[in-house]
């Protein structure tokens, strides 16, 4: 039996951590992620199945909701990203679990390697992220549980607010991770300077 293959992220841990001026940036990759999209048009049946399995209502607006063991982030009309709670890829294969549970009600696609999650947190993180994202992150417009698909500079991202610290998670396609990380750190430096 040959040796198993070892995983490697696009950001090396040493290069990726940033902690200055009250802003921390960390690589939060590792959770299993799968795309879920309604098939067959029976939304009520999909809702019921999800509610029964994970105790949560699939959001119809750009929100992220936590169920038991699984979190769903709105990712477009009748589309979601399902994220495992575990921050590593232990536990049963998410794509398999979802396919088994949802059957023909939804298309399920593994996205765990497709996306890298960067977390930015600390008092200055809203200002930092505001420099990078063209959306309004003011608490009156965007609060914990809200998510948005948008552009960070020229890079497509999905962002959501985790808590009012504030903490934000930013999902980006893996191949862009280093570019986004560079831009995020630059924005953090700019925000630290302004503060």
């Amino acid at each position: 039996m040959p040796d198993p293959l070892h995983a490697r992220g696009p950001l090396s841990p040493s290069a990726c951590s940033y902690d200055h001026g009250g802003i921390r940036i960390t690589d939060m990759s590792g959770r299993q992620v799968a795309g879920v999209a309604l098939l067959g048009g029976d939304r009520a049946a999909l809702d019921a199945t999800v509610r029964q399995a994970w105790g949560v209502d699939l959001p119809d607006t750009p929100r992220i909701v936590a169920g038991s063991g699984l979190t769903f982030a709105w990712a477009g009309p009748d589309q979601w990203l399902a994220l495992s709670d575990a921050v590593d890829d232990s536990g049963p294969d998410l794509e398999h679990v979802l396919r088994t549970t949802l059957g023909p009600l939804a298309a399920v696609t593994d996205q765990g390697d497709s996306r890298v999650a960067l977390r930015i947190s600390g008092p200055g993180s809203r200002d930092a992220l505001s420099r990078l994202l063209p959306i309004d992150l003011h608490p009156r417009a965007f609060s914990p549980g809200n998510t948005a698909l948008t552009l960070a500079g020229h890079i497509g991202v999905q962002v959501w607010q985790v808590d009012s610290c504030p903490t934000y998670d930013i999902l980006v396609f893996r191949s862009f991770a280093r570019s986004l990380h560079h831009d995020l750190c630059a924005a953090a430096r700019g925000a630290a300077r302004a503060a």
Partner: peptide, 11 residues
């Protein structure tokens, strides 16, 4: 209608 108001460069 899904995401809210956004700038032209997203479209």
């Amino acid at each position: 209608p899904c995401c809210g108001e956004r700038g032209l460069d997203e479209f």
